[in-house]
């Protein structure tokens, strides 16, 4: 049976306009103009992706799922967390979809929706942000030790020679630095947290 015949037999149910609420929600939550609606499902993104093999769904599949309104499945997926921000997909995408920025938006939505179960990646991001919000600078030593203690305690012994190497070669400080105008930065970030990106 041809697709046209299927539609004729099964009736108007299949002709309903797509519900693109989710697609638009993600598009609005993405910095810049996402071009997400322009995806033609060619798969150049997944084919260019160095970490696609470790993803639950390739980017192409994620965009199809967004179009299909499969919010929970998308936000449970590890895909945005495995994205390495290499931008190969962006420069190869014929529709100029800002794929890594869409992935960043999906991470934020997954955290808000409490759907992504593996806490490793969100924890790392949160620890990084904690240091930045309290010192204005990132703090490699604190970040690495805190993260490894919590998520890879068994790997710590194997990592000590590297950590020791970083310390003895003066490449890692064991104390953080703080910027001078921390109050100013805090005021900016506190205000920013009250602001949501909306559709223009």
């Amino acid at each position: 049976m041809s697709p046209t015949e299927v539609i004729e037999q099964k009736g108007a149910g299949l002709r309903k306009p797509e519900d693109l609420t989710l697609l638009h929600e993600v598009s609005v939550a993405t910095a810049g103009i996402s071009n997400l609606e322009m995806c033609i499902q060619c798969g150049s993104c997944g084919g260019s992706c160095p970490s696609a093999a470790d993803m639950d769904h390739t980017p192409r599949m994620i965009f199809a799922m967004l179009r299909a309104g499969m919010k929970d499945e998308v936000l449970r997926s590890n895909t945005p967390w495995v994205c390495v921000s290499c931008y190969h997909c962006v420069v190869r995408c014929p529709q100029k979809v800002h794929i890594p920025d869409v992935m960043y938006a999906l991470k934020g939505m997954a955290i808000d929706a409490k759907l992504y179960k593996d806490s490793n990646a969100p924890d790392f991001a949160q620890s990084f942000v904690d240091f930045v919000e309290n010192y204005g600078r990132s703090f490699e030593f604190g970040l690495a030790t805190r993260h490894y203690l919590k998520h890879y305690p068994l790997r710590l012994p194997g990592m000590t020679s590297m950590g020791f190497g970083m310390l003895t070669s003066n490449r890692m400080s064991i104390t953080p630095k703080r910027i001078k105008k921390m109050d100013q930065l805090k005021a900016i970030l506190d205000k920013a947290k009250t602001l949501e990106l909306t559709n223009e």
């Binding site: 910095a31 921000s85 991001a125 990084f128 920013a192």
Partner: peptide, 25 residues
């Protein structure tokens, strides 16, 4: 003078407007 961290690839995935405000400072 008194520059701050750019947020690397971490802040943008947590909270968009604060992340861009951090960079824009």
């Amino acid at each position: 003078d008194d520059w701050n961290c750019c947020g690397a690839t971490e802040y943008v995935g947590m909270n968009l407007v604060p992340a861009y405000s951090l960079i824009a400072r």
